[in-house]
Amino acid sequence: MANQGTLVVALTQRGRLLPSTYELLTCGRAIADAAKEPLAAVVLGAKASQFAPDLIARGAEKVFVVEHPALENFNDELHAKAVGGVVAKEGLARVLVPGSVAGKSLAARLSVALKAGLAADASQVHLNSSGLKAERGQYSGNIVSEVEFRSPVQIATVSPMAYPRAEAQAGRTGQTVAVPFEPGPARIEFVSYQPEESSEVDLTAAERIVSGGRGLGTAEGFKLIREFAQSIGAAVGASRAVVDSGWIAYRHQVGLTGKSVRPKLYVACGISGQIQHLAGMSSSGTIVAINTDAACPMMEIASISVVGDLNELIPLIVAEIKKRKGAPAAA
């Protein structure tokens, strides 16, 4: 019998479910509905079973739980073995994997193990009459390519924020299946984890980002960006120019050599919009540009643009937001 069914891979990191799992459930739900098949999920971790009810409430009809201490931290071989085992045993056709570091590493290993086609960093995955299709950017997003599959098992890693997060719905029911797992000898040993020192929002998972560029004038000016971001519960981004100038740490850099982001709202303050920066954020939902130069590329692509001086405008905007919205929104 031909492989059938869609599987969402729910990865845990530091004992928590990756938030992008909910995005995969939205994507997977639409594919499962189009195929008129149930949606399955597999959750992996040291304490994975606790997440099964949440996955069911958000749209999975069957949840495979692979719970083992060896799966607490990501290990490409062990995670691929666990997911590959479920896919092979259940004869599943489509596998959706988070577009995170762990997800990508896992999907690559799985692809070879199952001789399955892989579309990496897909911005859209859907099923039509001729099969599964994945859209992904190439040349830093300058072209969009449609990937089609020719293998019985088909894998896509889905870019963070490409889909809205599936909401929990009361009354949904599903089946939970515990999957036995024998890790075997490991060639990779987890030593330790060093958390990011700041508690700032992860840029790639942020719904709102306020970014600053050269137009701020000085490193001091970056304070305005933090205040603006805080007022709307946004993460702080930056252009390469200001990171290179040492105004802010590299982990805030958006663009080709920094992070790729696609928040619902991206506010570019004093960023002219060099192609390398645009490559990292032009898929954002709404782009707001604030700049003195009315004709720069960022102002051209912006959904909403404001011509003006940042040092004058941002404090006024923040004051207006506080007046209208009250206390800062949660991130």
């Binding site: 892989l118 072209i143 390519s145 449609e146 020719r150």
Partner: peptide, 23 residues
Amino acid sequence: GALSAAVVARSSPPPSRPAGVRV
């Protein structure tokens, strides 16, 4: 055959963003 398990069917320029508004 087997090594073409996933292939690019076709490519296109990214969809252009809708025209923006100036405040």
